[in-house]
């Protein structure tokens, strides 16, 4: 039986990079798709709005684990032979898109109506209003909750271990099986997640506080 020593620790630490890579990949792809979802959610066309709402409801109303299983087994049915990486990336991107889309929709709608109207009065087209006037202001509001969601996303990647994707959690399982020392391994894995997430949480809180101060100052003027 192996003892838990430096090598085992390094194995877990090395696996942590896949947690980070998967989180970033899902964030980038999910962010691109989420931006689209957010814009469609505030569209003036009802069917488009309904479609985007349905997407969000579907992914926020079902467990992430089920989404993983469905992508993993489901896309295989269409003759797409997926490796674990592709399946996991697709599933997490769709998941992130639903949440980010919903967060960003809130931010777009938080921009005062007058901004839209003023832009319209300047005879901007709908897309120009959105792109040049509303989104630049929405982005500022959106940053703190987006960073907050990144924490949620990092934690959510742990679920990928269940379908055998090797990241931090799976590495912890493998090392537990090799050393029979779950008392050391799992608290250590928890500590590593904490080391990833806590700075992000603090950053999100800091950004939120700063935004609130900025807003309060803006109102005073």
């Amino acid at each position: 039986m192996r003892q838990f020593s430096t090598n085992e620790f390094l194995f877990i630490l090395a696996a942590m990079q896949w947690t980070v890579v998967l989180s970033l990949l899902a964030f980038a792809l999910g962010g691109a798709l989420g931006g689209l979802v957010a814009v469609l959610r505030v569209s003036r066309l009802l069917p488009v709005r309904l479609l985007a709402t349905g997407y969000v409801q579907l992914f926020q109303g079902t467990p992430l684990l089920m989404q993983l299983f469905l992508v993993y087994y489901g896309l295989g049915l269409f003759g797409l032979r997926l490796d674990a990486w592709t399946a996991v990336t697709v599933a997490y991107s769709c998941y992130a898109a639903a949440f980010l889309g919903e967060i960003w929709r809130g931010c777009i709608q938080a921009v005062p109506r007058e901004q839209w109207e003023a832009a319209k009065a300047m005879s901007f087209t709908y897309l120009q209003q959105l792109r040049l006037i509303v989104i630049p202001q929405a982005v500022r509001i959106a940053i703190p909750p987006t960073v907050g969601f990144l924490v949620q996303l990092v934690k959510a990647t742990a679920v990928a271990s269940i379908i055998g994707f090797v990241e931090l959690t799976r590495a912890g399982q493998l090392m537990t099986n090799a050393t029979f020392q779950p008392t050391i391994v799992y608290p250590l894995v928890a500590a590593l997640y904490f080391a990833l997430c806590w700075p992000l949480s603090l950053w999100a809180q800091h950004l939120e506080r700063r935004l609130r101060v900025d807003n309060a100052m803006g109102r005073k003027k």
Partner: peptide, 23 residues
């Protein structure tokens, strides 16, 4: 609150189910 909010539920589950029995 901070410890729980910054670690995954799955790991908390493993700690409760696998780590605590040895204690």
């Amino acid at each position: 609150v901070e410890a729980i909010r910054n670690t995954p539920l799955l790991i908390q589950l493993y700690v409760v189910f696998f780590s605590l029995p040895s204690l």
